[in-house]
Design a binder for these strands. Structure first.
Lengths: 242, 242
DNA sequence: CGAACTTTTGACAAGCATCAACACGTGTGG
DNA sequence: CCACACGTGTTGATGCTTGTCAAAAGTTCG
């Protein structure tokens, strides 16, 4: 368990998005014991049903969280990017309820649950920041329910693009108008509850109308206002303000 | 702020579902300062955009949490019943992202966030129990995403019936085969992403096949195995084991 | 008893899934 | 260097599924 002092800064940045931490709090976060894992695209970080004595924090790259639903395939229930705390569930509770799989190659910090618990006992401000982070994550899940349950295909696709862009911008990964989208059209379909063909049609129509441009896995948002309108996107649910 | 010693036991029962608490922990939970509010059916407990210095705990009755989605109506994103902690979001973060509205008349305890924070600093076991509860709630949101995104109408309706039954049973409200369903077919439709007509057809077909019976707002599950199969229900996501 | 709400049923149209075929880029091996 | 396979994106045709509309029957409550 080597301690690489600087590698946890994405976690700290995430916590400071929504909470104010003092110097000792910050130092304690960065001093958390951890191992840095290199995960290849497609590899699993967490598997449903398994338990782990550690939490994981995304340091770089993208991952998706999914569930397998009977014989009806896969539903992606969330996307993780830099700074995200993934799956305390399988360590605080008895087993993971979903799978987390790398979309790109990632660097992931593995932190013993014990250390996180000790930290939150010693440093209430950090505990509260983690609480705020968890509540914000819940809010994202709720928005996804609304997205899948009530929006039409174009709206769903536009909405997930807005979310990816806003979250990447908040994590300082990108400029607001640029958005990494490391999911193919089948992945996007599994995330928004659509057949891949209709993801294609939605993306194509957004492109033809000049709202977005595509360059491989990157998306350029040429008309943010229009994309927000089509996706009925209200960033409040991301709780990005402190 | 009157302190009614015994009225918080549903909260304690909820926390002890997934965590082991000692005597002093239990006493501290029950001693939380609170006010008991009587809420009429249809009244709002939390409104989107508002902030509150208090958390709320359901003591009795049912409530739903919903979001309004553009001009496409309402999406119910969750149901709250006895023992549920509702909306720390609007007190830990800056504003509520969704509305919580009573389905039946309810009794709700209003607890100052300050008191909850102090409790979790003083009693790490309680803090961890609340953490476990929040993680389990997240897991439910994920399952709802999968339910709406990937199951057919019969499956969606069967699944929500299974969940309501299992959660009520865990809260010791009902026998496993009986289930209070204080939502009309329009509500159920808004919860599972279906038009109300098809909720009706799904319920009717389940009844005709002898899987369920309906008696007003109560549902009798005559063939649990069949309902579980149709709804592809795996109770693990509720994390009801300790 | 009547009014308002909810459930039920039917008819119809629209939307989305499915299937199929082709295009395009990339990497691999002959 | 070309041929090929593979993954991904694109497009069209078709039909089931689900939403919409409408009206009647049942229920609850004043």
């Amino acid at each position: 368990m080597e301690s690489q002092i600087s590698s946890l800064w994405p976690l700290l940045a995430k916590l400071e998005l929504r909470s104010r931490l003092g110097g000792p709090d910050r130092a304690a976060v960065l001093a958390l014991p951890h191992m840095v894992l290199a995960i290849g695209a497609g590899e699993y970080i967490v598997r449903e049903g398994e338990q782990s004595p550690s939490c994981y924090v995304m340091l770089s790259g993208f991952a998706q969280r999914h569930k397998l639903v009977g014989d009806r395939g896969r539903q992606i229930v969330g996307v993780h990017l830099e700074g995200d705390i993934i799956d305390c569930t399988s360590s605080v509770l008895e087993a993971a309820d979903s799978n987390v799989q790398a979309l790109t190659s990632c660097r992931v910090a593995e932190i013993p649950l014990e250390a996180l618990i000790n930290l939150s006992v010693d440093r209430p401000a950090v505990a509260r920041a983690m609480w705020a982070d968890a509540l914000a994550e819940m809010s994202v899940f709720r928005e996804w329910i609304a997205n899948i349950g009530r929006r039409d295909p174009r709206g769903r696709v536009a909405h997930i693009l807005c979310e990816m862009s806003a979250r990447q911008h908040a994590a300082n990964v990108r400029q607001p108008q640029f958005c990494r989208m490391p999911m193919n059209q089948e992945d996007i379909g599994d995330a928004v509850g659509l057949a891949p063909v209709h993801v294609n049609r939605a993306l194509k129509s957004l492109e033809l109308e000049g709202v977005i441009s595509r360059e491989g896995q990157d998306i350029v948002i040429d008309d943010w206002e229009a994309l927000v309108r089509i996706g009925d996107f209200n960033p409040d649910y991301l709780h990005l303000a402190a």
